[in-house]
Design a protein around this nucleic acid. Structure first.
Ligand SMILES: [Mn+2]
Ligand SMILES: [Mn+2]
Ligand SMILES: [Mn+2]
Ligand SMILES: [Mn+2]
Lengths: 225, 225
DNA sequence: ATCATTTATTTGGTATCCCAAATAAATGAT
DNA sequence: ATCATTTATTTGGGATACCAAATAAATGAT
């Protein structure tokens, strides 16, 4: 085993990929520092190392861009992270809101084929326990057509697909109110006063804040995954 | 997750435990450096850090001794290492001679209960794929009464238990000649010329060098494990 | 006891990642 | 255009973990 693990490099690439996916137009040092919760000086230093390794490009306007190599590497880490999460939930019976931190560690295990064997063992799952798609061996990621609950047509049936937020606080909340991927959801109405949402989830009626509604992403029932 | 992993500390403790078990009477810096394949200056520096952390004691004769805390920590790592090896062989279908390096990484995953869940999932195995006993939750390790093939009574039946050597070269050799834990072994005779051993392994007869014989550890057939 | 070899230790580096504090540059609101 | 705020960058450090080369100390064989 190599003595330098380059865990950090992998975490930076993943963070950059996530910012890129979020549609952040100009990927700044400040945004990346905030996402990684690290000092901007640290991040600047590291980004320059990543540039030397040709994993990111620093554009003239000082914005940071993943190279194809960098993006590919990020997708490998995401693939590993999500497959380990499936393992933890399906095989070790963790709750789906408990596995993220462990997967943060496991995603860095270095091996040519461990993750592929894991995928086979798990029966080639398409989604992780949070409803996020798992990149295939070639790094291809399914693009989801999901929309936030705030954009749902009232009265129409939807299926919860995944979530825009991934914080522990939000996942714990979802666990508590029993909202998870695959469950049926319908918007019954919106309270004009605070823009909170009356929804049916499974067989229960409940009220969720606009903020929560914006972070639950759903698919129209019967749509292709 | 803490940013300092202390992988090295764990590897040092494991190495010290193994030297201790091997019966090395005076545990020197030189022996530890050789086992870890690191520069003696590096090892000395690290041993002093371990002493500051009260995981080892440096005796007046400059020998290194694990404290109880240090030994307990070593046993936790060994427990994790061996359970991950069982996972890799039983669930991901690796060969038993391919899993050591991967387990070297996986043993460092930090979690309060991952290893216990893994143990449950694997059905509480008593031994790893190499025949070595797995410490329990409290760090208790079965003491094996195994003896090297060089000490066997010719004509008597034995079962291969585990191995004194764990190098890749040796494990690959064993895989090639199909010697693995659980297989029956009998010494038919010893060649006076080079002290090589004529043995029956399973249903086959073969000749093994004295060095190989010394590194295969067996139990009399019918003995308590 | 002497001398050669081995072992332990010191010294001065390196690489990876991280920080705080100071400064410089860019941005934005008036 | 001016000034305040935000962002980027520089500078000087720190921790973990490693190395090579020089020196000191211990060991062992004669
Ligand atoms: Mn996750
Ligand atoms: Mn991570
Ligand atoms: Mn290890
Ligand atoms: Mn083993």
């Amino acid at each position: 085993m190599a003595h330098f693990a380059y865990y950090s490099e992998e975490n930076y690439l993943k963070a950059l990929y996530k910012l890129e996916q979020k549609g952040t137009r100009k990927l700044t040092n400040a945004a990346l520092s905030k996402m990684l919760d690290l000092n901007p000086a640290t991040v600047l230093e590291m980004v320059r190392k990543l540039e030397a390794r040709e994993l990111v490009s620093l554009l003239p306007d000082r914005s940071i861009q993943l190279t194809n190599t960098g993006r590919q590497k990020a997708l490998v880490i995401i693939r590993k992270h999500r497959l380990w999460e499936v393992f933890l939930v399906d095989k070790l019976h963790y709750n789906w809101n408990e596995v993220h931190e462990l997967a943060e560690q496991l995603e860095h295990i270095e091996s040519a084929d461990l993750v592929d064997r894991l995928e086979t063992f798990l029966g080639f799952p398409a989604f992780d326990p949070h409803g996020d798609p798992i990149p295939d061996k070639e790094g291809h990621l399914k693009v989801l057509q999901s929309i936030p609950v705030t954009d749902c047509t009232p009265g129409k049936n939807y299926l919860v697909q995944h979530f825009a937020e991934t914080s522990d606080a939000f996942l714990d909340y979802l666990q508590q109110v029993q909202v998870k991927p695959g469950i049926r959801l319908q918007v019954n109405g919106i309270n004009a006063f605070d823009r909170s949402f009356n929804v049916s989830v499974g067989k229960r009626n409940m009220v969720i804040s606009e903020k929560v509604a914006a972070n639950i992403l759903v698919l129209p029932e019967g749509a292709n995954q």
